[in-house]
Structure formats: structure tokens, C-alpha cells
Design a protein around this nucleic acid. Structure first.
Lengths: 261, 261
DNA sequence: GGAGCAGTAG
DNA sequence: CTACTGCTCC
């Protein structure tokens, strides 16, 4: 028997929405420590990895590891039936072929129960090595979203280049070209929220190209966290991470476009 | 070399947005006094004329007259990348085939540079004669916007008739008809902003019909000025003018619909 | 001015 | 069936 509950069911809905555009279905791997999920997009260029820690749940019980094969579009349909302030409980029998999603309004005056049929999904769990990245940038997630969205009006590939002082997003296309540079925030900045800052940790300057189309997919997760962390290396995937207080994180990996000139 | 800078880049973005719906591309004529632009809509019914005085810029330098052929949709894409509070600089080499648009956030922590490819646009500059209009109405621009929008739900042609006392906007359609009359504000009105007033200067009563579809296009400029001035004559174009403090104005000309009954 | 929805296009 | 864009409501 697996059972967990979240005070903010809405959070879970946003998580599923953030995964859905990239992968059709995937296995929720539930164990004593929490829930994880991994999936690649259909073209095998991007990977999304979700890790939810049991500490983020108001209730968590996992007698025995279970794998829940989920079609995200179908789950999303059910989650649309959840109220904005609803508490969410997820339950699954050890040998069942469905999972139950219960939505409860704050005063429990409305209780909804949905049963989602599970799927059998063959999918190797990819080990993502904990690598040392050459550059790690933390910035407001909304700013990253805006940059990706705006630049995709100009072209479809962004070049991200990082120096100690700044991170530069450049794009080129038929109508012209453009770049946006974000300077590392002054460490002495006392005023303003810390989440508004741009922080750069650099071991070595990097420059890599990425398909904006995927980055724009990633920014579906903007609602989940005020900040986003971009980790870059040379000829290795970009990692875009959104950390949720307590609950864990959602990470997106995107292979760089290797210059074809 | 042409170079100018605006403290409120946002203003320029709104200007381009106000032009864009009507004309696809046009020539920015830059000379020692400022920038002007003219263009007709594709059906040659409406004309937009922009005039920006150099006094409105925080920096202005024009060694030699230049013509910048701009595709407004493409420029708008780049201007979307500008922050709300950004300062805007525009630069063009005398013989270049592109113009550069630089956006700088207030604290300069974000600097963006976009290069827009210029076009070769053949277009005669139309001389718009300074005519004496029979009626000139000044009213809050938001009110004019609301009237045009609301009336277009009833029909597609508005009749504007002006007397000394009031201006009347009438519309008719399948579902019925309606009209909205605005009385000239009392000159003795001490309370309230002057921009809230309706002022009518009349030489002779006028009545003309106009296509609401264009008027609704014109009201994209509402954000640029608190007031709008409508100038009418008989069988001559309506002029809809939005004046910006210091910077100049945007004017729209619309030929009347001649009754075909 | 932004977000959500619906309608369209791929 | 899904993803984007335009529109309308907030």
C-alpha cells in the first residue's frame, strides 16, 4: 500500500503540467524516501527528472516500493477537477492496476475521488551522473522564462555564454539578431529579495547553443519556484532546475546543439 | 551616424504597437529636428503619421538625414525583449543595412542589444495639407476608446455629428441602433483634471460616417496620451491625434464613408 | 497588462 | 491529439 497527501494539491497539478508537454507517460517510482520520475522527450533531446521528498508531504506511507505507470495527459484531465485550495491524497494498492486521487476542499465539504488506470511502461531509469559544472547561474525563474519566450521570437537557437561577470543569451535569425546580458548582482545588495538576484558561480567560461523550443517547454515549471538554476559545461547537457521549498525539485536536461558549420 | 536615446523605451514600444496594426512597414525619416514616419493601411483608407521631436529625446544626434526602412512586426518582436523601465537607444550607421536597438535596465544590470535588418521601402511622402477643420473635439482618449469599442458591437459604421453643445456618436445595425452624446464640459468646471474634459471648437456643425474598424485600430494609441483630438470637416478625412508631452504626436487620418443609399 | 480559454493548425 | 496563437475576461 502506498499513500501520500499534499496540503496544496495545486502544486502537484503544476508539476504534472510541467512534465506533460515533454513526455507522454512515465513511471512514478515511489519508495520509503519519496517519489521520483524520469522521462525523455520523444526526440530524445531533453530529459525531465522529478524528485519529491517525503518530508514535503503531510502524510507519507510506502510499505514497499511501487511503480505507478502514468499517462500524464489522462492524469492532467483528472487533476483539472481539483479545486484550487484542495488537499490531494494519492493512494495505490501494491498489486492494483489503478491509482486513486482524492481531492478535498479545505473544510472537507467537497470530496472527490478519481481512479486513474495505470499503464505498464518499460523504461530504464537513467543514471544521471552528478557532474561538476563549469558554470552555475541562479536567477529569477520569471526572468528566465521571459528571456526564452522573447528570444524565440527572433530565432530558434540561443547561445548561452557565461563569464564571471555576466551571463549572455544571444539569438540570431532572418530579421536580425540580439543578445541580453545579465550582470551578476552585487553581493552588497542589501535591498531587494534574494530571489531577485542573479548569481554566477564560475569555474571556467562556457558558451553553448540550445534549442529555445525546449527551454520554453522547461519554463512551464516557472510557477513552481521563484528561482531557477542553470548549470552548464562544455558539450554536456544544460541542467535547468526548479527547487520547491521542502518538496524537492524538478530538473530538465537539454543536450547542446553542436555547431554544424 | 544617427543616434538617439529615450528614457522611457516603453513609450517607443507603444508607438510602434500603435502603428503596427495599420501598416506593415515604413520609413523612419530622421533629420536634425527629429523623426517622422508615414504610412497608409493596405486598403488605402487610413493613414498614420508619426512625428517625434528631438526635444523629447534625452540624447539626439543626426549628422546627416537618414531613412530607416523598418518592418514593424519585426521591430515589435525585438521591442518585446525590452524591460518595462528600460532606457532605449537607437543607432544607425549612415550606410548600414541594420539599426541597433539597445535596452538598458535602470541599474544597467541588464543590457540588451538587438540588430534589426533594414528594408528598402519605396514610398512617396504624402503632403498632408494643414486644413481648417469645421469641428475640433478634445476628449479623454480612454473615453473615445470605450465608445468605439462599445459601438462596434452594434454596427460597423459610426456617425459622428458635432454641434456647439455636444458630439454624438451614432451606430445602427441589425439588432437595433444607438448613440452616445458627450456634452461639452462647463468652462466653469474647476474640479477635475483638465484632461477629463470634453472641449468642442466649432465653426460649423458637421456630420460624417466612419468605419469603426479603423477607429478601433487608432485607439491602440490610447496609452500614449490622456486626451485625443478629433478634427472633422465635410467630405474630408477625420484626424485623430494623440499628443505626447514633449515628444511629439501620432496622427491618424481616416476618409469618411460616403453614404451609398 | 496578464492569464486562461478556445479555436486552429500541424 | 497536441501545441501554438489570438481573444476575451479579469
Amino acid at each position: 500500500m502506498f499513500e501520500c497527501a499534499l496540503i496544496q494539491g495545486e502544486l502537484f497539478r503544476k508539476l504534472i503540467a510541467s512534465v506533460q508537454d515533454l513526455v507522454q507517460d512515465g513511471n512514478f517510482m515511489c519508495d520509503a524516501n519519496g517519489i521520483s520520475l524520469q522521462g525523455m522527450d520523444s526526440s530524445h533531446v531533453a530529459l525531465v527528472a522529478l524528485a519529491l521528498k517525503k518530508e514535503g508531504f503531510v502524510e507519507y506511507r510506502c510499505d514497499r516500493d511501487v511503480t505507478l505507470g502514468i499517462n500524464f495527459a489522462n492524469l492532467a484531465k483528472m487533476l483539472k477537477c481539483m479545486g484550487a485550495k484542495d488537499r490531494l491524497s494519492i493512494r495505490a494498492q501494491d498489486e492494483g492496476d489503478s491509482a486513486s486521487f482524492v481531492f478535498e476542499s479545505e473544510d472537507s465539504s467537497r470530496v472527490s475521488n478519481f481512479e486513474l488506470k495505470l499503464m505498464q511502461i518499460d523504461q530504464e531509469q537513467l543514471g544521471v551522473p552528478e557532474t561538476q559544472y563549469k558554470a552555475v547561474i541562479r536567477m529569477p525563474s520569471s526572468e528566465f522564462q521571459r528571456i526564452c519566450k522573447d528570444l524565440s521570437a527572433i530565432g530558434d537557437t540561443v547561445s548561452i555564454s557565461v563569464t564571471k561577470e555576466a551571463v549572455k543569451f544571444s539569438v540570431g535569425g532572418d530579421i536580425g539578431s540580439g543578445d541580453m546580458s545579465l550582470r551578476q548582482s552585487e553581493s552588497g545588495d542589501v535591498d531587494g529579495d534574494d530571489s531577485e538576484k542573479v548569481m554566477i558561480e564560475l569555474e571556467e567560461p562556457v558558451q553553448q547553443n540550445f534549442a529555445l523550443r525546449y527551454l520554453n517547454n522547461f519554463t512551464k515549471a516557472t510557477a513552481l519556484s521563484k528561482t531557477v538554476t542553470l548549470s552548464l559545461g562544455t558539450d554536456m547537457p544544460l541542467v535547468t532546475e526548479y527547487k520547491m521549498d521542502n518538496l524537492g525539485s524538478i530538473r530538465y536536461y537539454l543536450a547542446p546543439k553542436i555547431d554544424e558549420e
